[in-house]
């Protein structure tokens, strides 16, 4: 399984010279499986550039965690949407209020958009994520509701023996300290249990979190505790606050590694996601390709590998 980060920012795009290393695009992750099939996780602004790489793809599958703008904003600029021969399937959270298509159409419609969903040249299908596991090709997908504002899913994706959990917007410590909760009372626990790679919300520092309780996101300390509690073999911290510069995120990465070590974990198995990261995930643990930086996302000792984008 290969994972590529096309957008790791939360809330709103945050471009600028102080954001270049971690990137300013919002949530979008490309996952490529053993049989070369692919899934796209979320359609934040990062999906725009990904769409240019998928120029010839006949089919595209997208899993949306929820419909906040930072997770769907790139959809209207996703090149495959404008190719008549392309079939796009989108899964997302159900709602008793309106269908997935109707809810997405509130964004892809006037006055916010010059085109309507029904005008997209591609063939597009909208599906509520099933309540039980389902298969997309040879891959097993499981969706579960997680603690965030509004209907929000996390995903667990299994390809052979390799598992990935993607929970980009998540506040599992809302209302109770994770230290005080049994496993059965922790949101997202089953999704993330024993995964080879966990991609998880880490929007705030611990100092910032008290002013944002209930906003649906995690502080660094809670993200680390959650990753440890579920037994994630590696964790990639994600959904960076738009106010956090590269310098700030470097400091958070160093703090994360130190605290992870203090929890008895290998500091090379924790990292902050950067736009352009390519991660090979295998059951024993992933290796990371980051050509531009010349060092691994997970620690600094792995030899750099070939990367198609920096």
């Amino acid at each position: 399984m290969k994972v590529k980060i096309w957008g790791a920012r939360g809330s709103v795009p945050a471009p600028g010279p102080t954001m270049n290393r971690y990137g300013g695009n919002t949530s979008c992750v490309q996952v490529t499986f053993r049989d070369e099939s692919q899934l796209i996780l979320d359609a934040g602004t990062g999906i725009r550039a990904l769409g240019l790489e998928l120029a010839g793809a006949p089919r595209v599958a997208i899993l949306l965690t929820h419909l906040h703008l930072d997770h769907i904003q790139g959809l209207m600029f996703f090149h495959p949407c404008f190719r008549p021969e392309c079939e796009i399937t989108i899964w997302g959270p159900s709602s008793p209020e309106a269908s997935l298509e109707d809810r997405i159409a509130r964004y892809i419609s006037a006055p916010l958009s010059p085109v309507e969903v029904r005008e997209l040249p591609c063939s597009v299908a909208f599906n509520d994520a099933p309540a039980s596991e389902w298969r997309i090709g040879d891959v097993t997908v499981r969706a579960e509701a997680v603690t965030h504002r509004g209907p929000t899913l996390g995903y667990r994706i299994t390809d052979g023996e390799t598992t990935l959990a993607y929970i980009p917007d998540h506040e599992p410590a809302l209302g109770s300290s994770l230290d005080d909760l049994a496993d059965e009372w922790i949101s997202g626990y089953d999704l993330a249990r024993d995964v080879d790679l966990l991609i998880h919300d880490c929007q705030y520092t611990d100092a910032e979190y008290p002013a944002h309780v209930g906003w649906g996101h995690s502080a660094l300390g809670d993200a680390l505790k959650f990753a440890d509690r579920v037994g994630a073999k590696r964790a990639l911290l994600f959904h960076h606050d738009p106010l956090h510069t590269d310098e700030k995120l470097d400091a958070m990465a160093a703090e994360a590694a130190e605290r992870w070590r203090a929890m008895g974990r290998d500091p090379e198995t924790i990292a902050l996601a950067r736009e352009g990261d390519e991660i090979e995930v295998n059951a024993p643990g992933p290796a990371v390709h980051r050509a531009r930086e010349g060092r691994s996302t997970f620690g600094t000792t792995a030899a750099p590998q070939v990367s198609t984008r920096g």
């Binding site: 579960e144 509701a145 997680v146 603690t147 809302l174 209302g175 109770s176 496993d183 059965e184 009372w185 922790i186 949101s187 997202g188 626990y189 089953d190 249990r193």
Partner: peptide, 14 residues
Amino acid sequence: GAQRPLELILARNF
């Protein structure tokens, strides 16, 4: 499955 449904988790938090 070891985890309670989210609605029960949130109810307990409430």
